[in-house]
Nucleic acid binder design. Sequence first.
DNA 1: ACGGTGACGCTCA
DNA 2: TTGAGCGCCACCG
Length: 114
Amino acid sequence: MISFAEKVYNVTRKIPRGKVATYARIARAAGSPRSARAVGNALNKNTNSYTSLSLRSLARSRADTKLVPCHRVVRSDGSLGGFAAGTEKKRKILTKEGIVIKDGKIDLKRYLYR
DNA sequence: ACGGTGACGCTCA
DNA sequence: TTGAGCGCCACCG
């Protein structure tokens, strides 16, 4: 039986480049509406993140299917939220994927993956 | 079993 | 709008 964390990873894997999802929405998609916090916990433990790859190999990656793009998960108010490798790293990767971050926030109207 | 932890979120002042 | 406060929940020791 798949754990909550695995559900979280599966849902997160669906977020395409250039889009983001929120911890709360991931929680709902994983079937536990009030576990936004636990989602962060799960992602934090995940070792299969993009940071384990160079930004270069990332560009042509087809690895999207295996790796969990946890940098695409942000807070519901548009602020970045945490990141195991540091929020600065998170900001860089997102920017590289084409997402505009203004005053530390992302416009969810525009970038939220539905 | 129980209590602490944390990459969260909502409410209210 | 911004921040403190508090509730939440999967995990782990």
